[in-house]
Design a protein around this nucleic acid. Structure first.
Lengths: 209, 209
DNA sequence: GCGCATCCTGAACGGCAATTCAGCGTACCG
DNA sequence: CGGTACGCTGAATTGCCGTTCAGGATGCGC
């Protein structure tokens, strides 16, 4: 459940702060997030934040990395119940759909991705963490595809290429959903993602000409 | 060439500033961009910026909208020479590939998209402009598909759904390329996008079972 | 040459927000 | 019971940066 191997006493406080920072970024936006906002989210003083983190900058990058990891772990956990490849894909797609902005509960991880991308451009630490997790995400997709091919659920294809395509499409769709694009809501996103799955994985290879 | 119908004398100065602001955001990042940076880019004083724009905030949103429009126009222009649907798609894909960071020349529009997404979350003006331009972008894709279907280049399919899928995939791929993901460079992006086109547009409909 | 509008600037101003610091409570240890 | 370490805070402090303003230059019509 916890991200790090053994959260020490102060480690749990650090995670509270990381969560509070994530929430603040989701709510106010990356640029408008002040240390005071983060402190408010856990009912503490601004000085406390700087007691656990050396500066606002590193806190923000750590918060974005933290959320990325949480997302990766929650998906991995959700996949454990599934058996067939088709089932697993439906879980992946569901996880990729931005929720209609839960107020109160855990931060909707999706909201933070544009912030993470924007920040990655100048923050090597965040950039490499993000790249690593993204690679893992694609590998997960590729594994499911290979599994489905082995079980005969899917036709043979290059699973690595497909993984990049699907991951990209999900990112792009999620952006639209998250921004409230009137023509792409979560249902539409699910439908289009599934249509791509059907097309790419189930279409039999057509003979030449 | 100009974005607005009739650029007045001061309008051209405004555009200089919008371009300078875009460059600054691309270079320093959305949060780290100061008015002084924008002023430096055109060799002027910070006060000049506020002479043409009421505040930093509106300048930034206008700059992001400006760049979006520039991108849309440049694509529309590039498409004029093309005749076949296949040709047009190759232009669209090429336009979607982030360039290897031109230094000096026009800002690589791609760099600004995460900033635009992040800002759209809280800026209704930017959000609606972005949604409108995105809709136009997808409509352009759909038109080309319909054209290709009519000419027999493509098999019949729902062009609107396809447009959303392709636009999303291009967005997602471009993010990876822009962030320098080691496994997705511009060439790979082109290849995967074209593979999706082939799969979706040229695969003959397979009979039931 | 004169007046005026436009464009632009240097030099304040003011406020905000990150960071620092000195110290208070408290729990634990002996 | 002291003493010590830790967790935490309120109140400075500090520097930055958006914004304002009072004017200088420049060009143009008369």
């Amino acid at each position: 459940m916890a991200v790090s191997p053994r959260p020490s006493l102060t480690e749990s406080r650090r995670q509270d702060i990381l969560a509070a920072a994530s929430a603040a970024i989701a709510e106010r936006g990356l640029c408008e997030t002040r240390i005071a906002d983060i402190a408010d989210n856990i009912g503490a003083s601004p000085a406390l934040i700087l007691y656990y983190f050396p500066s606002k900058a590193v806190l923000l990058t750590e918060a974005l990395i933290y959320q990325d990891r949480l997302f990766a772990e929650s998906v991995k956990e959700a996949l454990e119940g599934a058996t067939t490849a088709v089932e697993k894909f439906s879980i992946l797609i569901e996880a990729s759909c931005p929720r209609p902005s839960r107020s109160g509960g855990a931060t909707d991880g999706w909201t933070l991705w544009p912030a993470a991308w924007e920040m990655s451009r100048h923050d090597p630490t965040l950039a490499s963490a993000r790249a690593r997790l993204d690679e893992a995400w694609r590998a997960q997709i590729a594994d499911i595809v290979d599994e489905g091919i082995a079980s005969g659920e899917f036709r043979p294809l290059n699973s690595t290429d497909f993984a990049i395509q699907l991951a990209a499409m999900l990112d792009g769709l999620a952006i639209e959903v998250m921004l409230g694009d009137p023509t792409v809501d979560a249902d539409r996103m699910r439908g289009l993602a599934n249509a791509f799955l059907d097309l790419a994985l189930k279409t039999p290879v057509s003979g030449t000409t």
